[in-house]
C-alpha cells in the first residue's frame, strides 16, 4: 500500500464530463462478460451440436437410398430435402431449434441479466458507479439481442458446415417449385437466420422483464423458460385459437415463407410486428419496474 502511486492526476475531483462514446463502454463490458461466462459458451455449444446430430441422423437414415420424413411423422420442415442439398440442413436445423433450444438459450441469458447481478450483489455496485438504471437496462437488452443473433448464426453456420460435409450442395428448389442458384440460396439462408434471430426479440424482452421482478437469477431463468413452454402449449389448444395470434411463438415458423418464390411476406410481417409489440410492452414494463425499484440485494 504505497502512497507514491497515487491515482493519475486528474486536476480536480468534480465535474468530469463524459465523452460522447464513453457510454458504450458499459455495453462492451456487458457483451464481453456475457460471452466469457461458461454458461453462455455451453448454450452456444449445444446449439452448434444440434445441426450435427440432425445431419448425422439424416445421413444414417438415408444410407440405403430411402428418403426421410415419409414414414411416421414429418419431422422438422425441410428435412426431406436435406439429402438433395446440404443447404437445406440450415433451414431444417433452424426449424428444429426455433421452438425450444433457441428461445430457451435466450430465456436463460435474458432471465439472468438483471436478477443474476442482483443475486451476486454486483448490481448495487454497478448502480452506484453509477451505471444509470436506464442505461444498464439498455445495455442488458442490447446484449441479449446480440446473443439472439449470435445463437441463430451459430446454428446456421454449424448446419451449413455439416450440410456441406455430408451432402451435396448446388442449385435448390424452392417450396413453390422454382429453381434458384446456390448463391441466392445462401443469401436466403442468411436472411432466414436474421429472421429467426428477430423472432426471439419478444422472448428476450419477456425474460428481461421477469429478470427485474426477482433477485434470483435461477428463478428468473426458470420462469422465462416456463412461460416459453406454457405459451407454446397454449398455442396448440384449438379452443384458444382466438388468442393464437398474440402468442409470441405463433408466427415463428413463418420464416419458411422466405423459401417461396416469390416470397410471401404476410406472416413474416405479422411475426416481426408481434415481436416489436412484445419488445415495446415488456421493455417498458421492465423499465417501469426497474427504474423505481428499491435495490436491497
Amino acid at each position: 500500500m504505497s502512497r507514491a502511486d497515487a491515482l493519475p492526476a486528474e486536476g480536480s475531483h468534480a465535474g468530469r464530463t463524459p465523452g460522447p462514446l464513453w457510454s458504450l463502454g458499459l455495453f462492451r463490458s456487458e457483451l464481453v462478460i456475457t460471452l466469457r461466462r461458461w454458461r453462455t459458451l455451453a448454450l452456444l455449444g449445444v446449439l452448434a451440436v444440434v445441426p450435427v446430430l440432425v445431419g448425422i441422423a439424416v445421413k444414417i437414415e438415408t444410407r440405403g437410398g430411402s428418403s426421410v420424413g415419409h414414414r411416421g411423422g414429418d419431422g422438422p420442415a425441410f428435412i426431406s430435402q436435406v439429402t438433395n442439398n446440404g443447404l437445406f440442413l440450415v433451414f431444417a436445423a433452424l426449424a428444429a431449434t426455433l421452438p425450444f433450444f433457441l428461445p430457451m438459450a435466450v430465456g436463460v441469458i435474458a432471465g439472468d441479466s438483471i436478477a443474476g447481478e442482483a443475486n451476486a450483489g454486483t448490481l448495487r455496485y454497478l448502480l452506484v458507479a453509477p451505471a444509470g438504471r436506464t442505461r444498464l437496462l439498455l445495455a442488458k437488452y442490447t446484449t441479449t439481442l446480440v446473443f439472439c443473433l449470435l445463437a441463430a448464426l451459430v446454428v446456421a453456420v454449424s448446419a451449413l458446415a455439416v450440410g456441406a460435409l455430408l451432402f451435396p450442395l448446388g442449385d435448390l428448389t424452392t417450396i413453390s417449385g422454382t429453381r434458384i442458384s446456390l448463391a441466392d440460396g445462401l443469401g436466403r439462408a442468411l436472411l432466414i437466420a436474421l429472421v429467426v434471430a428477430a423472432s426471439l426479440v419478444g422472448v428476450a424482452a419477456l425474460g428481461l422483464f421477469v429478470s427485474t421482478l426477482t433477485g434470483s437469477g435461477i428463478a428468473a431463468m426458470a420462469t422465462t423458460v416456463g412461460l416459453l413452454i406454457t405459451v407454446q402449449i397454449l398455442d396448440q389448444i384449438p379452443q384458444l385459437d382466438a388468442l393464437g395470434p398474440y402468442f409470441f411463438s405463433h408466427y415463428w415458423l413463418s420464416f419458411a415463407d422466405l423459401m417461396r418464390d416469390p416470397v410471401q411476406w404476410d406472416d413474416l410481417q405479422r411475426n416481426l410486428g408481434l415481436q416489436a409489440l412484445y419488445a415495446a410492452v415488456f421493455g417498458s414494463a421492465a423499465w417501469a419496474r426497474f427504474a423505481g425499484k428499491d435495490i436491497t440485494a
Binding site: P8, E10, R16, T17, P18, G19, W22, S23, G25, L26, R28, S29, I33, Y125, L126, A129, P130, A131, G132, R135, L136
Partner: peptide, 14 residues
Amino acid sequence: LRYDAADPTADPRT
C-alpha cells in the same frame, strides 16, 4: 475494469 466501465464519466483511455 468492469466497474469502471459502468461509470460513464470514467475515461476509457486512462
